[in-house]
């Protein structure tokens, strides 16, 4: 016993010493790399935030004093506001549809059936298909069917199509990890199939469901390329942002960007929080 404990301690000791020995070489390089990484990742975002408060008609530096004027401009523009509303509404609807579809797909994957691999491949395909190709394919598809472009028709389908594989990947792990014995126990105690679903399965996976909804929302909110191909009159935030750059150098652009970033990161962060709760519950 004591011998075992001593060897265990030795192991800990040597493990603690290893990084100290190589502190000079590798870790300095790693430190520089990490610094550069975060600088490139968050630097532009920081600059955008800074510029959104810049009291200047021209987008760019130098910084001429702080103002919230551009936020007022954004909130005063009806086309921007309606785009924001469109994006949020579309985000929630496509998230709800994709999550529901992911849930039932995941349930079906708990049993083996013929063609399962094919279904999985088809569900995951949009991830590997380049966005521009996906957009073109959808455009041709809707053209053939004679469906007029519209926010809650073509764009919604495009978004669900794009979001579903991610929703599936988020939710499926949780569903497959669900102990079948727990469901059997419920049934053994007298629960019918629907009671097992409502009283056991759904409550247990609820955090994972919420996480999936939020991730899906963020993905839909940010989607641009496919939307561009299939949209009608009603625009989403990314499309409006893009046309603002193309048409003219709009000074309110940074403020719009910051609002977009806030909404989509808020969605993802809440998603992560729920995902963490979900995995804690699983343990």
């Amino acid at each position: 016993m004591s011998v075992l404990a001593a060897t265990a301690l030795d192991d800990v000791g040597s493990a603690a010493q290893r990084p100290r020995r190589s502190l000079n070489g590798w870790s300095i390089a790693l430190f520089i790399y990490a610094t550069a990484f975060y600088l490139f990742l968050y630097g532009p975002i920081a600059i955008i935030v800074l510029l959104s408060f810049n009291n200047s008609e021209v987008t760019g530096l130098p910084f001429r004093g702080a103002t919230t004027h551009w936020y007022e401009v954004v909130f005063a523009r009806p086309d921007l506001m309606s785009a924001l509303f469109n994006s949020i509404a579309l985000g929630f609807i496509s998230a709800a549809i994709a999550t529901a579809m992911a849930f039932f797909l995941g349930l079906s994957f708990r049993r083996d059936y013929v063609g399962q691999q094919l279904v999985l491949g088809l569900v995951l395909l949009p991830i590997i298909l380049p966005g521009i190709l996906g957009g073109i394919v959808l455009l041709i598809f809707f053209g053939y069917l004679g469906i007029r472009p519209g926010l809650y028709t073509t764009v919604l389908v495009a978004h669900v199509n794009w979001v579903l594989p991610f929703a599936f990947l988020t939710l499926n792990g949780r569903l497959q990890g669900l102990d079948r014995a727990v469901e059997e126990a419920a049934m053994d105690l007298g629960a019918r199939t629907h009671q097992v679903m409502l009283r056991v399965v759904l409550p247990i996976i609820r955090p994972a469901l919420v996480a999936t909804l939020l991730f899906s929302f963020s993905l839909s909110f940010d989607e641009f390329i496919r939307t561009l191909f299939v949209m009608g009159y009603d625009r989403t935030v990314p499309v409006v942002l893009w046309s603002a750059i193309v048409d003219r150098l709009a000074p309110e652009l940074p403020a719009m960007a910051v609002i977009t970033i806030l909404i989509s990161t808020a969605g993802s962060l809440c998603g992560f929080a729920f995902a963490a709760r979900a995995s804690k519950r699983q343990a």
């Binding site: 102990d179 014995a181 727990v182 059997e184 126990a185 053994d188 105690l189 247990i204 699983q282």
Partner: peptide, 16 residues
């Protein structure tokens, strides 16, 4: 759910 039996599972399977 229709049988007059109840089972205690090897993994217990309590509702988490």
């Amino acid at each position: 759910y229709g049988r007059p039996t109840n089972m205690i599972f090897q993994q217990l399977a309590l509702f988490p």
